[in-house]
C-alpha cells in the first residue's frame, strides 16, 4: 500500500493542519509521530515524498534522513525537511545529508504544498 506523502511530525496540531492541506491537494497520506516510526513507515508505505520534522522524539529527523540515504532502496526518496529552529546551521546539515527541500516553520500552506508538489514532479 503506497501513499503519496508520509508525514513525520510530533506536534499533533501541526500534523492536523498538514494532513488537512495535503488531503485537499489530493494526496494520500500516512503519518507518524517519532523517528523510529518514520524509518519503519518509509519501508512499509513506500511514499513518493517524505515530509520530515527535524525535532522528533526517539530519533531526530537528521538521523532518519541519514538512515534513509544509507539504504539503497530508499536512497532516492525525495525528502522535505521542516524545522522550527530557523537556523542556517540546520539548513546546511539538511543539505549535507541529502534533503531535497527545506521549509522553516512557520510556513505558509502554499509554500509546503508547492515544495511537495515539486518533489513529486521529480520522481513522477
Amino acid at each position: 500500500m503506497s501513499v503519496d506523502v508520509l508525514i513525520a511530525e510530533d506536534e499533533p496540531s501541526i500534523l492536523d493542519s498538514l494532513e488537512f492541506i495535503f488531503r485537499r491537494a489530493g494526496w494520500s497520506i500516512s503519518s507518524v509521530a517519532d523517528g523510529e516510526a518514520a524509518i519503519a513507515a518509509v519501508g512499509e508505505t513506500a511514499p513518493r515524498v517524505l515530509v520530515l520534522d527535524v525535532m522528533l522524539p526517539k530519533r531526530s529527523g537528521f538521523e532518519v534522513l541519514k538512515h534513509i540515504r544509507s539504504q539503497a532502496r530508499t536512497a532516492g526518496l525525495p525528502v522535505l525537511m521542516l524545522t522550527a529552529k530557523g537556523q542556517q546551521q540546520d539548513r546546511r546539515t539538511a543539505e549535507a545529508l541529502g534533503a531535497n527541500g527545506f521549509v522553516t516553520k512557520p510556513y505558509s500552506n502554499a509554500e509546503v504544498v508547492d515544495a511537495v508538489r515539486k518533489l513529486m514532479g521529480g520522481t513522477a
Binding site: L18, A84, Y107
Partner: peptide
C-alpha cells in the same frame, strides 16, 4: 525559545 515559539505559531498560521 525560537523552536518553542515557532511551533505554536506554525499551527496558528497554518490553520
Amino acid at each position: 525559545v525560537s523552536h518553542e515559539v515557532r511551533t505554536p505559531m506554525t499551527s496558528i498560521r497554518s490553520f
